[in-house]
Amino acid sequence: MDTRIQLVAIVGAVFLLVLVLELVRRRRLLERYALLWLLSAIVLLGLALWRGALVELAQAVGIAYPPNALFFVAFAFVLVLLLHFSVAVSRLGDQSKVLAQRVALLEERLHRSERGAAGAGEPTTGAAEIDPAPSQAPFAEHAGTRR
C-alpha cells in the first residue's frame, strides 16, 4: 500500500482527534456529542496506523484497494453522525415547541391576573382556576420536568 495515502490518513485522523478534544476542552462541544466523533477519530487512526487490520477488513468486505476501506469506514461514521444530529435536532425542536407553549400559557395567565388586579381590585381568578392536583392522571402533568 502506498505510504503517502497512509501518511495523509494518519495526519487527518490525528488532526480530527486533537480538534475534537480541543473543542471539548474549550466547552464548545458537549461531551454527549463528542463521543461519537472521538470514536470515529480513534477508529480511523487505528486503521491508518495498523495496515494489517485495514487489509484484512478490505479483504473481508471485498474491497480491492485497502485504503478505500478507510474511506468506507469514514463514510459509515459520517452517516451515523448525521443521523445522530437529526435525532438531536428533532429533540431540540420538540423541546422548543414545549417551551413556546409554556411561554404562551404563562403570558396568558400573567395577562389575566394583571388585568384582574388592575380591574376590580379583586383577587385574580387566573391562579385560582389552575387545576392544582390532577393526581390520578395517567399522563405527565408538567411539560418541562425531566428527572
Binding site: R91, D94, F139, A140, R146, R147
Partner: peptide, 9 residues
Amino acid sequence: PGDHAPVAA
C-alpha cells in the same frame, strides 16, 4: 407522571 412525555423525541 414524571416521564418526559411531551418531548417525544
